[in-house]
């Protein structure tokens, strides 16, 4: 417990002082603010130069379209910010020998791993929630029509948070396996983007976490039984990756 407490505070200080919060905030909330504005302004800017047929595409942008645009950006760009800012979460601690002093003082690896996971899971949840909420009110005031409601936004938000919780656990484990941070970073990105392919295979897609991303974009459709395996597997993956990370950090040579 004391290892957990010490590392939770440490992660908080580190994220604040090394601008991790700032980077993550940009990676998530920035798009929530920028996207709707771009969608609103772009047709106005392009009015003069684009042919009418193309322009008509922009003019029927509604709230749903604007919100889906955020979902897409968070998945494509938000993950980049997320993965690149957190890929060293364990690897850089090990490779730079920052764990020598804590381990020599009897640090409990499970405390450290859980503190790191829970700290960033909370952080990312807050940023995703903030992004979805700002986007919703913004979109509502800029655009008309569409089915978008606060219930839909919160449901999608929940699915995204669960998805990022899985990715965070994966990143944590990968980061404990390698000394160079860039390797877990690229591996996780490959998995994130690569697994989206399975969303085309309706037979197995709901057994993989990326199904959460697909369902988040299915506006107006809430829980159904096809999500049961997805939820179950997501939670299982989080638990197993955290467990493996703890085992790894108990065995690893930190000096």
């Amino acid at each position: 417990m004391r290892s957990f407490r010490a590392y939770f505070k440490k992660e908080f200080k580190e994220a604040a002082r090394n601008y991790k919060y700032l980077i993550l905030a940009v990676g998530f909330i920035f798009w929530a603010l920028l996207d709707p504005l771009m969608l609103k302004l772009l047709p106005l800017i392009l009015k003069a130069s684009l042919p009418v047929e193309l322009l008509s595409q922009f003019t029927n942008i509604n709230r749903d379209y604007a919100f889906l645009n955020l979902l897409k950006d968070l998945f494509q760009v938000g993950t980049l910010f997320f993965v690149f800012s957190l890929m060293g979460i364990i690897s850089s601690e090990v490779s730079k020998k920052k764990l020598v002093l804590p381990y020599s003082r009897g640090l409990k690896p499970e405390g450290m791993v859980l503190a790191k996971y829970i700290h960033y899971a909370i952080t990312v949840s807050i940023f995703i929630f903030a992004a979805f909420l700002t986007n919703y009110f913004y979109v509502k005031s800029l655009f008309n029509s569409g089915v978008l409601s606060i219930q839909i936004v919160l449901w999608s938000c929940f699915l995204y948070i669960l998805y990022f919780a899985v990715i965070l656990a994966l990143l944590l484990y990968m980061s404990s396996l390698f000394k160079k941070s860039i390797i877990p970073g690229l591996l996780v990105l490959a998995i994130v983007y690569g697994f989206n392919f399975f969303n085309q295979l309706s037979l197995i897609r709901n057994y993989l976490p990326n199904y959460l991303i697909l369902r988040a974009a299915d506006l107006g459709v809430f829980f159904d039984t096809s999500l049961i395996p997805t939820f179950f597997i997501s939670v299982f993956l989080i638990a197993i990756f955290i467990f493996l990370t703890i085992i790894r950090m108990k065995k690893i040579d930190v000096a």
């Binding site: 440490k10 200080k13 580190e14 002082r17 090394n18 730079k96 020998k97 920052k98 020598v100 002093l101 020599s104 000096a255």
Partner: peptide
């Protein structure tokens, strides 16, 4: 233990 090249969290 005082290691040969102690490394800290330097932002602290």
């Amino acid at each position: 233990y005082l290691p040969e090249n102690p490394v800290f969290y330097e932002y602290m």
